[in-house]
Design a protein around this nucleic acid. Structure first.
Lengths: 325, 325
DNA sequence: GTGAAAGCGCTAACAT
DNA sequence: ATGTTAGCGCTTTCAC
């Protein structure tokens, strides 16, 4: 049997409440506290979180819901969350929904009752579904905004602007855009950013939507080459890498024949050939901030207040973008 | 306040024990069960797992400890675990130790008391440390073997053999091996596999250890080119990708000038240029099997018995390997 | 088959 | 400052 407060109390010659107080920071005499802590340590006492949660109403755990851990973007988010969680001694339940909106909703239902709050990456579910399933009091949306819920997002509109301005400065006048899933919030944001940029001698040519994957990028490669564009902005880095792959296969040299800019700046971006210019999104920082928001650690802001944090994006210039030939 | 057994009992006009029995499969009359279930559903009752765990001694949760979620290898493992966990309605605590052996041990200490068991990916900690920190009864090691603990590993020795035989069949007679961290179990396994293969007209040239990362591979690229090898087996795919990168930069065409074979077959392997030949390790399946072992669902085998599962590896041939020029 | 009651390990009143 | 006691929500004897 594992050691309980009872055991510690007996061994230390005090009552259980004194033990509890000594360990959780109640008012105890310094001497007693010291003694209790020593005994607890000697006995290898570890408080039973379930029992504590039963009475305090707080579990010390939170839930993190992501569509796909294999996606480097969400792996980074998860990394940011777990790192911060470890620092504040908070457990993290992970739920990979496999890109299934139904699973997302189920995960919310399960986790909201067994955690102190939920960090939610839900690109697929509808606004209304989210509003119905989630408790605004202790849910923070990551990389998506829904009115009525707290959220931490990146300034995608500005990131898009930076990418296009970069290409324009290099001399590009016709830029292709490979769009992602039309129903995604992030995809719409990119489009919003693009809209205000066209004109003034600059043409944005949409190739239409592809899957936000490497294969989607491969597909888009041919579409882009068929058009007059000298540069292409991809929905995300995975798509951009598919593009690079296809362009290489078709003999189109990057960046001489075609400049390629990705989005998100996942760790792979620096490993492509050539290394990928990309709009950096603070993924792990977003995760850490969302956690702080949820736990009410983020200064005056609280998840309950429907806070909306917007983090800056920055363009990282690598070798995949250059002056047009 | 959320609905409890009390609420359901009152609404259904029965006692709490009947509700409990009806919901957990005790002996109740079919009529009562139906009624109780209906009421519970109507009230949106969700059992409090903490309270249940307090009495049953089982939490319905398990812990998954990985060194780095950003590493595609462990992302795959985590994916396999979470997918299976969802199927058996089991919560998963995730702990990313950031490659820190001390954090690994801490995570074990925390999780072993708050879960039904631990799935442990711990390449760094020493055997003795692991044995001291982990409970053999409910710990399963993933991709590492320590006597006295249950484990699920891949047949690395055979995978190495397949890779080398493949290269030998292509006509290579001098093959470089880029080694990984010397203290790692997986690294030693690869070496073991290699030992039995050299000789008989085949020369294995070790370049020494590098970091098991893209940058490590970049570094190794020059070492390999400086030697007489016509092919190289990398410690893992990340290293292989760094190799590809450096070889391309040095103008060494793959596979004509140099064949490259990776290890693990992470999803990126198919995205490199050229696509990478790699030894496929069943990562997500290993995760799922480890979970079954832990929960005693894997037939006759139980974690408690110190089971050692070895999963087969298979070489996936892509474009990075070919006949020497 | 069903209900009453005990108690899992812990914290938070309430006493002292 | 410390001890006593009542639960948190649930399952599980033990009666009936």
């Amino acid at each position: 049997m594992r050691t309980t407060v009872q055991d510690v109390a007996r061994a230390a010659g005090v009552s259980v409440s004194t033990v509890s107080r000594a360990l959780t920071g109640g008012s105890v005499s310094p001497t007693t506290r010291e003694a209790v802590v020593a005994v607890a340590h000697r006995l290898g006492y570890q408080p039973n979180r379930a029992a504590r949660g039963l009475i305090t109403g707080r579990t010390g755990n939170l839930g993190l819901i992501v569509p796909d851990l294999r996606n480097p973007f969400f792996a980074d988010v998860a990394k940011g969350v777990t790192a911060r969680a470890r620092a504040v001694d908070c457990g993290v339940f992970i739920s990979d929904t496999d890109e299934d909106p139904v699973a997302e909703l189920e995960a919310i239902a399960t986790l909201r009752h067994n955690t102190d709050g939920i960090l939610l990456c839900s690109p697929r579910a509808k606004d209304a579904e989210l509003l119905a399933a989630a408790d605004p009091q202790n849910t923070v949306l990551l990389h998506r905004r829904v009115p009525g819920l707290s959220s931490v997002v990146a300034d995608i509109v500005d990131g898009t602007r930076q990418a296009i301005e970069h290409l324009r400065a290099l001399g590009h006048r016709r830029i292709a855009y490979v769009s992602g899933p039309e129903d995604s919030w992030a995809a719409r944001q990119r489009l919003t950013g693009l809209e205000s940029l066209a004109g003034d001698g600059l043409e944005i040519l949409s190739t239409g939507s592809v899957a936000p994957t490497f294969d989607g990028g491969v597909l888009a490669g041919d579409l882009v080459l068929a058009g007059p564009a000298t540069a292409v902005l991809a929905y995300n880095d995975l798509v951009a890498m598919g593009l690079l792959h296809r362009l290489a296969a078709r003999g189109a040299v990057v960046p001489e024949r075609m400049s390629v800019v990705g989005y998100d700046d996942i760790s792979l971006a620096g490993m492509s050939h050539p290394p990928l210019t990309s709009v950096a999104v603070p993924k792990d920082r977003a995760g850490a901030i969302a956690l702080d928001l949820l736990l009410g650690r983020a200064g005056s802001m609280t998840a309950a207040q429907g806070a909306e944090v917007i983090l800056p994006t920055t363009l990282v210039v690598r070798a995949s973008s250059g002056v047009p030939r």
